[in-house]
Write a protein that binds this DNA or RNA. Structure first.
Lengths: 175, 175
DNA sequence: TAGCAGAATGTTAGTCTCTAACATTCCAGG
DNA sequence: CCTGGAATGTTAGAGACTAACATTCTGCTA
């Protein structure tokens, strides 16, 4: 990550990473399936599915996902150091990496879809709801990273999730 | 595209494509910057921005984007042949290509953001609105391709856009 | 019609990511 | 000590893409 931040993603070769780590190129690929994987090593969050499933089933699917994500983010502590910010900034400034975020989001999307269809929501509706909310969330994330100032990430995400809904609807969140 | 559909994207080499086209490998790269570019050669739609800008400025940004896209899709004729369906199916079944859709969506997202901020919407709000709506739309598109049956694409997209909004709000569309 | 300029295409050689097959070193337990 | 498995290394190669340079093709002019 240090090399990426310093010289850029494309400009850093796997050979250089391996050398900096005092290891052979082969060993690098045994730990990371691809060069991109170094950037996308986020732990995956199964809590999200549970929180979404817990939202009021009487609401439209989009609202349940939105309120669920909102609830999930309020309970998560702000773990954002410079490293995370650098990482997201790196991603935001690189079209190929930014697209790569979606390879990761897909797992989360599937998880959300599963949680929704399990409670009787139609498949298309579930997919659209998940895709829309993750789309808004990701846009906010990348937007946050592109800014020089240091506003809190969580606050920004919360704002984004609120912006996505009808005014006043946030009072229906189930923790 | 025929080779991709027949043997798969990863299994088809540029050398094979070039040979099938009766051309050298070098010439291939002079027409397509990357192998992926063969799949993503959609013409870009500047109409979208105009239609979105035309929506009622009193509504929240997400609603304006949503209703704008809805209006844009109703006016577009259904141009979906087998070729298009094959293409989308190919993308939907390949994680890397599916993520690549977002490299394309980015242009559209920027266009929408520009249209919104031009009428006084805040940048974050505009980005989130655009990201969310494109997220839902893309989810519907990929979901459509993954199905065996032949429901109309436009109908599917319309349904998706309606599902994203509050019930009854669609009456506010401005053509 | 000959010839010329520029566009299109080809050749060659190379870099870089990633894979596979096989060899080597390291380390814990018997 | 020594032995078996894990971690690491070496070598060779496929495949996407780039750069420098050579060649052919095409349309236009003298």
């Amino acid at each position: 990550m240090a090399l990426f931040v310093q010289r850029g993603f494309d400009e850093t070769t796997v050979a250089q990473i391996a050398e900096a780590a005092g290891v052979s190129q082969m060993t690098f690929f045994r730990y990371f399936p691809t060069k991109e994987a170094v950037v996308f090593d986020d732990p995956y969050d199964p809590v999200i599915a549970d929180v979404i499933a817990a939202q009021n089933p009487g609401l439209p699917a989009v609202e349940r996902v939105r309120l669920g994500l909102l609830a999930a983010w309020t309970s998560v502590p702000e773990p954002v150091g410079d490293a995370t910010r650098d990482k997201i900034r790196l991603i935001a400034g690189h079209a190929r990496l930014a697209a790569g975020v979606w390879e990761n989001n897909r797992r989360t999307e599937d998880l959300i879809v599963e949680a929704l269809t399990g409670t009787g929501v139609g498949r298309l509706e579930a997919r659209v709801a998940a895709g829309a909310c993750l789309g808004g969330l990701t846009a906010a994330l990348l937007d946050w990273a592109s800014e020089p100032d240091g506003q809190e990430l969580r606050e920004r995400i919360m704002t984004a999730l609120v912006l996505m809904g009808e005014p006043g609807a946030t009072s229906r969140v189930v923790q």
